[in-house]
Amino acid sequence: MDNQDIEIKVLMEAVHLKHGYDFRQYAGASLTRRVKKCLADTGLNNISDMIPLVIHDKAFFNSFLHNLSVNVTEMFRDPQFFLSLREKIVPYLKTFPFIKVWSVGVSTGEEVYSLVIVLKEEGLYEKSLIYATDFNDSVLESAQKGIYSIDNIKTSTLNYQKSGGKKSFGTYYHADYNSVIIDRSLKKNIVFANHNLATDSVFGEMNLILCRNVLIYFNKDLQERVLELFKNSLRAYGFLCLGSKETINFSGIVDSFVPIVKKQKIFQKKVNPAFEGVK
């Protein structure tokens, strides 16, 4: 193990012991890049110089934590996914009197608001409860506020249209100078809460779980833990949606699911081995 790896390992151990956040099973290459970025901001020489700061300096730790988590997202990211959700999954969800949805790694909220817009247009929102979770309180706060730069609205609108959107996207936000704020009606059935995939466990039985582009940041062991957690958090015939480059194929849960939309990585939990999924 080279010096840099030792320093990162000890730093992450300190973060875990002091604050409870567990990055010890994150994929190393990406984590190393982000830790180095944090180091560059401090002007310190060595990664290990940040250890006293994460222990003693609360303000430093908060910004450190913010920089360690990946908060790159957009509204209706991968429009084709939302189109599949609307066309293939929503009709099935409509057969329930009430549905529970978990949007995992919600970051600054764009993903969960996109999901809520689909549910609303399909007449499902009034009977839905959506848990939107992240391990990072500061991004949860941003998500809850739902205020975004107006610069991204053009992309969002285009994505929305490609995703099978039925209205004018402008009905979902209010513009104010250089920002837009998400319409209040989209927020009322969302519960924003802190949940850490590395350390926390099952908290409910869901009909639908969205966790896109989160697993790629974990190593194999943590991916396995999280997929097992998702399996146990879904009711029978519930749906799991992963990022376009993520899969359950090499995991222990593969036999418990049926791929419903292969390309969009939408899987359905089965209860008996012969079940072939909704068609």
Binding site: G28, A29, S30, V72, I216, Y217, K245
Partner: peptide
């Protein structure tokens, strides 16, 4: 590398993807 993702190499010679900036 797939479009839209960074491609990274882990120390144990495994490939990782990311959607970092």
């Amino acid at each position: 590398a797939p479009g839209g993702y960074h491609l990274l190499v882990e120390k144990n010679h495994i490939l990782s993807l990311s959607v970092d900036e």
